[in-house]
Nucleic acid binder design. Structure first.
Lengths: 263, 263
DNA sequence: CAATATCCGTCCATTTTACGGACTAATTGA
DNA sequence: TCAATTAGTCCGTAAAATGGACGGATATTG
């Protein structure tokens, strides 16, 4: 039954199963603290259970995925970790941004996050905590969520051309629900962020947390990462939000200069 | 033409292309500093060029692989890095071993390596340098080589049952050549290491470097990792080798105790 | 503690997907 | 400028992957 996959436009041919395997890996990565059950993976990826099972068996065999013997839940495996170690030297965004994150954390006292775009997702690749005693750890390092969900993520989206924003929101539509946010509202928020030059919002899942984000662009001008600062809402007055936005903007300017030399 | 793949016994079915894709990823990882050309990848993986190309196109599209625009060479991509970050919290061997590595580096003055088995390969997952001014950086973090090539690697092999050693050496045979070592000689060295309880050898590729290694076993008693110490041969007298071996053995004992609690 | 609902894992006939031989384009290098 | 090497593409064919259906394990409920 040709379900006429209404997926993305960018159709590659002759690689269906690899695409599916990577889709699975991303989905497992997106829930790596709690682990994923076979059925949930099948549902979330829109694949048939037998297909998912067969692929997971292979991925497990090769070490990309691990299955907990008791719970049967799937997690990323040691090979994923090792490939990451190997790839790391070529991805020095973390190192480049580290001093800036320290400075921002010191200046604000709040927690700073570094987020990087990964296709239809955004991944938190670093975090630095400030001194203020109430900490808001809205993101763990390595956490993967649909593009547009976090505040840093929103800043990345807002910096993209309008038609691409639409594309992303269309393809992530169903995934947004899982994170308790609606597509249309995200679009409004993205437009607001475009006007302001930075993103700001209340965490939808965690009441009382407010964040400010600013995108980072590469040499060719496309936003591929973002810095964001998170704090309890009571500290995030309107005045303070704009102050932090300026702080972020300046630090990002420095980072972007370094990117030109480094990459 | 049914080439009757004389591969490994553990035949999975319905996952050929995923297996091949992962084989490619491992092969790219094994040469990630210099990058890999399409043809070399095809040769090393024993796959057809069109197949490799098609798969690389997909992997590149998904961010697992990156292609340098000028040289056309392939490297691991940002998604590999990100998956690694996500997987990291569940692989704390590094953290557990870190204090031991510091102590060993201080005691010996030489460079200490932590190696982990990954199927038919071994991957260097950590390194700590001693104070002695002549340093022997025989391994970079993330470096992947066929199991049996390095000294830590050799210690892991030596701790396996004899038939498995044979299997590994058979399937890695051709890959050994690339690293300038011969299978049979490795077998002798493995047997020697079994008698001694630790592995020791002169680096085959880099004259004047001698290393000592000791395997680390998990709860179920199988060797899955190793600590090793590397130094210039003039420092590695026979007496000193045995001293370092004792030092390693004691540290490994402590690590193995922690593994029981941690994992 | 049956009975029942879920979910995991496997089988196998069918068909779509991926394979790879052959060709073209791009790049190197002599 | 021309040969040699490598990258990338096409497409008919065969084999690999798909997924509906079933058996078995584990959790849940009455």
């Amino acid at each position: 039954m040709p379900k006429k996959s209404t997926d993305d436009a960018s159709r590659l041919t002759g690689t269906q199963s690899i695409e599916r395997a990577l889709l699975l890996l991303r989905e497992i990565a997106a829930h790596n603290r709690s682990g994923s059950r076979l059925l949930d993976l099948a549902t979330r990826t829109h694949l048939q259970r037998p297909t998912v099972h067969r692929m997971l068996k292979c991925l497990t065999h090769e070490g990309m995925v691990q299955q907990d013997a008791d719970s049967h839940r799937y997690y990323l495996g040691s090979m994923a970790f090792e490939l990451g170690l190997t790839a790391a030297p070529r991805f020095n965004l973390r190192e480049i941004c580290h001093p800036a994150m320290v400075r921002i954390a010191e200046a604000t006292g709040d927690t700073v996050f570094l987020t990087q775009r990964s296709g239809p997702d955004a991944v938190c690749i670093d975090r630095h905590e400030g001194t203020f005693p109430i900490k808001t750890f809205t993101l763990d390092i390595g956490m993967r969520r649909p593009l547009g969900v976090g505040t840093g993520s929103l800043a990345i989206v807002a910096a993209l051309p309008d038609d691409e924003i639409q594309n992303i929101f269309n393809s992530n539509q169903t995934r947004f629900e899982e994170y308790g946010v609606s597509g249309p509202s995200l679009l409004t928020q993205a437009h607001k962020a475009q006007k302001l030059g930075y993103s700001m919002r209340e965490a939808p899942t965690l009441a009382g947390v407010r964040s400010v984000g600013h995108s980072i662009r590469n040499q060719s001008g496309t936003a591929f990462a973002a810095l964001s600062v998170s704090s309890i809402s009571s500290r995030m007055t309107e005045k303070r939000v704009t102050e932090i936005a300026v702080l972020l903007k300046n630090e990002v300017r420095l980072i972007e200069k370094q990117l030109i030399n480094a990459m």
